[in-house]
Nucleic acid binder design. Sequence first.
DNA 1: AATGAATGAGTGTTCATTCAT
DNA 2: GATGAATGAACACTCATTCAT
Lengths: 213, 213, 213, 213
Amino acid sequence: MVAGHPNTLRLAGEEDSSKRRQILDGAKKVFMDFGFDGASMGEIARAAGVSKGTLYVYFADKNRLFEAIVEEETLEQGRLAFNFDPGRDVPTTLREFGQAYIQLLCRPGGGSAIRTVMAIAERMPDVGRRYYENVLEKMIGRLASYLEARVSMKELAIGDCQFAASQFMLMCQASLFLPFIFQAAPPPSPERITQVIESATQMFLAGYRPRDE
Amino acid sequence: MVAGHPNTLRLAGEEDSSKRRQILDGAKKVFMDFGFDGASMGEIARAAGVSKGTLYVYFADKNRLFEAIVEEETLEQGRLAFNFDPGRDVPTTLREFGQAYIQLLCRPGGGSAIRTVMAIAERMPDVGRRYYENVLEKMIGRLASYLEARVSMKELAIGDCQFAASQFMLMCQASLFLPFIFQAAPPPSPERITQVIESATQMFLAGYRPRDE
Amino acid sequence: MVAGHPNTLRLAGEEDSSKRRQILDGAKKVFMDFGFDGASMGEIARAAGVSKGTLYVYFADKNRLFEAIVEEETLEQGRLAFNFDPGRDVPTTLREFGQAYIQLLCRPGGGSAIRTVMAIAERMPDVGRRYYENVLEKMIGRLASYLEARVSMKELAIGDCQFAASQFMLMCQASLFLPFIFQAAPPPSPERITQVIESATQMFLAGYRPRDE
Amino acid sequence: MVAGHPNTLRLAGEEDSSKRRQILDGAKKVFMDFGFDGASMGEIARAAGVSKGTLYVYFADKNRLFEAIVEEETLEQGRLAFNFDPGRDVPTTLREFGQAYIQLLCRPGGGSAIRTVMAIAERMPDVGRRYYENVLEKMIGRLASYLEARVSMKELAIGDCQFAASQFMLMCQASLFLPFIFQAAPPPSPERITQVIESATQMFLAGYRPRDE
DNA sequence: AATGAATGAGTGTTCATTCAT
DNA sequence: GATGAATGAACACTCATTCAT
């Protein structure tokens, strides 16, 4: 009956129709602010400035709209550029990456994609998995590649670079992300973030600096 | 108006009535599996083996029931004992604590308290804050106290033990928690956990071992 | 199964058990304040200081409890004594009766039996009818008897005394009862009541004074 | 939040949408038959021939729907035309007005607005007050104006015309309204009404006819 | 394509009533 | 008799979804 929703027909690279764009923008705001269950299609329609019916012209149902939002966020965050020039020195690279990473996690304004996706991951495992793989794992992978490059330059001594990358990223979160996501503290100040990342960098270097014999 | 639900009258230490216990157990399962919004009072009643009406005999409303679940989980997790004997050596203490901590986070069986609380923290900030303070912050604090003891024994050189504790705990999660919570990987094997914690311990010691001059 | 509720077994004149009395008192207050639907059995139990279960020991259900209340109120108001001594002069008798009647109707403190019964009369016609017959019609009848006595003394010229009594009573309400019951005005002052009744009395006398030929 | 229900947007004079009209008609019937509490939204939906959800498209909640019904009834009854031409003689005017008034009060078909509003007036004082002011008080006022005109023509001798109007209206109810509203008697026959009003008219004239010196 | 009126299944909650103690 | 824990049917209300226009 439904011959296919517009979204399923879109070719890669085709630009969104303005209505579809409107909907995605409105829905993103509402989903991120209220979570999947807390967001109502009516609220989304209002936020998008379209009628409720129009939502269903572009998206088969609420799930699919949500998935589209997460997919877009996933792509966007997956596209984030970091300077992983293998020629750059390790401390600088780690510091800059750490900054960008924490800013992604602790985005002010509350509605954070990561929380929203975490929340629903149990009921929509594919959504969670894809977000993890395309954003976080990918980020880990890119950092890991950089680290490998420096390992082969003998500047670092790391057994499992993928794992080391993950370690670094989590250290960057220390004292920042959990209080933020549990609403136990206001978003951290830039100064605090800098301190934390500096410490993570030092620790990382202390742990993975090649041992002089 | 209502002079108080049975739960508000319970004395400390008084054991739960069996019905109340049943409800808490059923509700915990449903809330943890489906999240606050995804859980319906009907489903909870069914899971608890009581009628919907009975739910409201023991809890004023869905929010209060949820809060009671989280409170209980909070207390239970906050009561978790770790061996922080200041006389024990650092590597052993960190390893054992790390194991217990990761087992708490990555509890098999899906429905995890931490995810459920995270998910709702934006709309129920008090619930989120209390969980963080009474479980995670408390755990950090206890590890920090231990570290301080070892610092004064000159075995560690740490500026901010609270922060260092947080760093250690996050390192323990490396490659484990995020894939788990995003449903991107099955719960990690005990061996994998041991490896990760060993690495975190080594890194921690490398970073905070006192420098001989 | 139920061999008969205590109330159905009570002999006339037997005094109420204290529990039954408590229930009637509590229920009366709650029913008069909130109406039949607005009153809950729980609230009634609380007001009566007994358990909800006990309500059902004495009364088969909410309807029967309500009927008992109305019945009691009916009897009580039906027992109200007025001085209808046929020897007393008409103006005095009318004035005094009018006062008592208005005080019955416009009882301060809100919860008025008459409103409560009116409200439910469509759904419980028997209750309404019995209240009307045993209170209002009876009152009309007693006034009518008095009037008849004075008619036979040639002091009044009335064709239908029953109807004339009804006319007098309604005139006494002029400007008082409707604003009161529609919450459009505070309960009338005693002075105002006196004026109104005086006017009703004059009008009545003007209308039913025997015509001298 | 919600920018306004359709009803709030209606321009004066704009005719009701057919659905809105259907709902008002169905709800009126159910509310008048069962009272505010006795009426369920499901029953109203059925009576109106719409779905429950549709009720909430047009009215924010049950209270608002009820208020709209009463408001409409209020306006309709407030618009009732009476011939209060100051040139018409008093007995005719009173008789005709009395007829119309009693027909309003004792409308056959049971469900009477006046009873329904009375019943709820304690819990919804505004609704009660507005009904009284816009229907009954207004009617009293119009009769009072007519009486004043005749007073200045020396045809009547009345101190307080507002009060006299109220007296007349209540006398017209004698033996009619209370039995009707308490379900103690079937609606009165037209002949009976005529008699009652004739008597009220006579009494009124007897009381307020100017005294010849 | 876009609308928005309409739907009805589902929600949280209340409450008259029952019954084991 | 008296209790109060427990029930489940009913309620007001929400919201994802449909469909005639």
